[in-house]
Structures are given as C-alpha cells and as structure tokens.
C-alpha cells in the first residue's frame, strides 16, 4: 500500500539521487585508490638501499636521497620544538587566562587567517623576513621558522580542544587546596591537554612532510650531508622539494617516484597514527 502512494516521478528522483551519491563516493575512493597504487607500484621498485643511504654525486652520477631525508627530519624536529611551546602556550592563554573577550576574538581571528594563507605566501614572507631581514640566508632554520607560523593554528586548535575537556571541577579543586594559578596550570591543566598537543604534533608532522612551496625559497635546494646544528644553518632540500626538483627540473622520474612512494607510505602511517591516537584518547577520556 505504502509503495503505491509514491508517484513515479518521486521514485525516479529518489533512485537518481541515490545513484549519483553512490557514484560520487565511488569516484572519490577510486581516485584515492588509483593515486596510492600508482605511486606505490611505480615508486617501490626504485627504492634501494643505495638510494636511501648515500648522497648524490655529480662525479660518479650517484643518486641518493639521504641528505633530503635528514633535512626533512631536522626541519620537523626544529619546527615542533618551536611551535609546540608557542601554540600550546597561546591555547592555555586563551582558555585559562584571557578575560578580555575582544582580545580572545582577535587572537582567534588571527589564527583563522593564518590557516587560510597559501603556503607560497608563507614562503615569500619567510624569505623576506627570516632569510633577508634577519640575515639567516637560505637555511633549514629559516624554513623551520616559516613552518612554525604555518602550523601555529593547528597546534593551537588541537590544544584548545583538549583543554576544554579538562573538567572545571579539577581546577576548582586545585584552587580550593590553595594552589596558585601557575601551579594549577602546571599540575592539572597541562597534563590534561597532553593528548591535544600530541594530536597537534602528528598533524603538524603530516603538514611539514607535505610542504614544498613554503620551503623552496626559505630552506633551499641543496643536497649536502650535515649534522643537526650544521644542517640547520645551511640550505637543504626536504623530500618534497627534492621530488619537485627531480621531476620538474631534471626529469628523473624514477627517483621522483621513489620519493613519492616514501612520502605516500609516511602519509599512510601518519593517518593511521592519528586515527589510533584519537581512538586511544577518546577511550581514556570516557573511562
């Protein structure tokens, strides 16, 4: 009876919309699947121990990406070391200290603005300010500082979200026991927002790993093997920048695909880690 009450036109509309929705979802998945498999299939056969463990040399035509791997690791460490205190501190200020509503909205608006600015603009301003004005030259440190500005909103947001889950009663309890504000923050608030900071770290690592436009003019394109501090002071290409150069400027697609496959695997791992951490933290909070 009920079926008959639906006219043919409505039935047609329903099946059309259903078909279109499923088609779109399938298309989205197909694109992801295609890119992932294509990159892995073309890249993995080109990954060799020699590629991973040597530096490129014009003399014997050797191609190695060890310097690029190290530069990437250095820049990730340097960026996180700077962005975590600033981002988490800003979040603590917004949720714990700030009493001026105007100021809060200005800071939040600034963070939103930062997250909308394209990376090429970060690269340009980073080059003008860090490399030229502060005279750091093209160096990993200049690149890392540029990335700090880029990732600030991410760390701020994740920390703020986890701070909101710290129950007010904890703070009140600590205050009631006579603890000062800083003591409450150090012993009650900060331990409670560790999960937000960790999530922020993971998201930032993912973003740093994938960033290229902001690093092209700040961190440069050199492939030199350096220690950590020496590396920070010198120019160095991260994996993404190296990929761009091997593909676009040199036309060496084998190396480019090998790097792309490595980046792809790392992206997969980071996504997995982010999901896993999210699940663990959620369970712990509910427990």
């Amino acid at each position: 009876m009920k079926k008959q009450s639906i006219s043919k036109r409505r039935k047609g509309y329903i099946s059309l919309m259903k078909a279109l929705m499923i088609l779109s979802a399938v298309l989205t998945c197909a694109v992801v699947l295609f890119i992932t498999i294509y990159v892995l299939v073309k890249g993995i056969p080109n990954i060799s121990w020699n590629l991973l463990s040597t530096k490129p040399s014009y003399l014997d035509g050797n191609v190695g990406i060890l310097p690029d791997i190290l530069s990437t690791i250095y820049i990730i460490i340097a960026t996180l070391c700077i962005v975590i205190p600033i981002g988490a501190g800003a979040a603590v200020y917004l949720t714990e200290y700030a009493s001026n509503k105007r100021l809060v909205s200005v800071i939040e608006y600034a963070a939103e603005t930062l997250s909308g600015i394209p990376s090429i603009i970060y690269g340009l301003v980073g080059m003008l300010f860090f490399c030229q004005f502060l005279n750091m030259q093209t160096s990993l440190l200049a690149g890392a500082l540029t990335l700090v500005i880029m990732n600030l909103p991410t760390v701020m947001r994740t920390t703020q979200e986890s701070l909101k889950t710290v129950p007010m009663s904890y703070r009140e309890g600590a205050f009631g026991l006579g603890a000062g504000k800083w003591r409450v923050i150090r012993t009650v608030v900060l331990p409670g927002c560790i999960d937000g900071i960790i999530t922020g770290c993971i998201l930032s690592v993912g973003r740093i790993l994938g960033e290229s436009a902001a690093l092209l003019f700040t961190a440069g394109v050199a492939h030199v093997l350096n220690g950590f501090f020496e590396g920070l002071a010198n120019s160095g290409a991260t994996l993404t920048v190296a990929l761009y150069f091997y593909a676009k400027e040199k036309g060496e697609f084998d190396v480019a695909f090998a790097i792309a496959a490595i980046l792809m695997i790392l992206t997969l791992l980071i996504n997995l880690l982010a999901t896993l951490v999210g699940v663990i933290f959620k369970r712990r909070r509910n427990a």
Binding site: T28, L209, G210, T240, A247, F257, A260, T267, I270, N271
Partner: peptide, 25 residues
C-alpha cells in the same frame, strides 16, 4: 569508516605527489 579514511588520506597526500601523478598520467 572506509570512505572517510580514504578522504583523510587524500587530504594528506603532498601536493608535489599530485603534481607528479598529474605530469605522468
């Protein structure tokens, strides 16, 4: 779950990888 994971992977792929696949496909 599967499709959302696929979407977040799509968000995480570095732009140069998109460029590379675009260049060759």
């Amino acid at each position: 779950t599967i499709v959302s994971n696929a979407v977040s992977l799509l968000a995480g792929i570095p732009s140069v990888v998109y460029g590379l696949v675009g260049m060759l496909v």
